[in-house]
Design a protein around this nucleic acid. Structure first.
Lengths: 117, 117
DNA sequence: TCCATATTTCCAATATCATGGAAATATAAG
DNA sequence: CTTATATTTCCATGATATTGGAAATATGGA
């Protein structure tokens, strides 16, 4: 019998059940990470953790114009890899660990058969 | 101390040590998978295993023109995700499981901290 | 209300990606 | 050497992505 989707039961603080990803979702998520500035931004958000970083800080740390970063953050939001919250005048972005876990789960289940990964 | 690359010691039949991926390598690999036909092709190659599938068969199974598939196979080869071998008139493509394991290793180590993935 | 800060949206320019038919290349067999 | 099969390369066309400055929106404070 064939499993068709990646079912990654959530283990993160906030709770919530993980829904299987469609192949279109996976493509969107992969594309969201397949770009220099976005991969760098995401890694930074992962390092920083749930506290997150404001858009301005992120632009400074990555040394890219704010409008460019805004575009990239939007891509990652639409892909569901990061979340946004407002804190006074600042918008704080943080990584969605459950989403990333689901992506890795999909890749492991669908693209790794036979290897020890 | 920070580990900077994904070090995925190989567990696959053929043997060989896994080199850490640069962030540029990761972007190339992610981009190679972030496309409908390429993701479908790669999943098919993973299912089929080391025996692989000829370019023609693959084009038929995916129902896309041969020249288009050739383009996509090239992208995945350059990304190091698949390998090619000739068998008489046919070119047989197969998934490189170690490369995929390295990619998943990178994502797990660099983009998953704190989650249970 | 008026001003300053934080960030986004708009937009035009450029670059990269994807498509598929036609021609070229590689291999094999009669 | 000629013909058939398997696949790639070439190329023009259209689609999508990326960039960054300028203008617009959101929030908070005097």
């Amino acid at each position: 019998m064939e499993s068709t989707g990646s079912l990654c039961i959530d283990r993160v603080a906030g709770g919530g059940v993980q829904v299987p990803l469609s192949s279109a979702d996976v493509i969107t998520a992969l594309a969201a990470l397949a770009q220099e500035h976005r991969l760098a931004a995401f890694r930074l958000l992962v390092e920083v953790g749930p506290e997150g970083v404001s858009a301005g800080d992120l632009a400074d740390r990555l040394a890219i114009p704010r409008s460019s970063l805004s575009f990239h953050l939007n891509q990652m939001m639409q892909a569901g890899l990061i979340v946004q919250r407002r804190e006074s005048r600042s918008l704080i972005y943080s990584a969605d660990f459950a989403a990333m876990a689901a992506l890795v789960g999909f890749l492991t289940e669908n693209c790794c058969r036979g290897s020890g990964c």
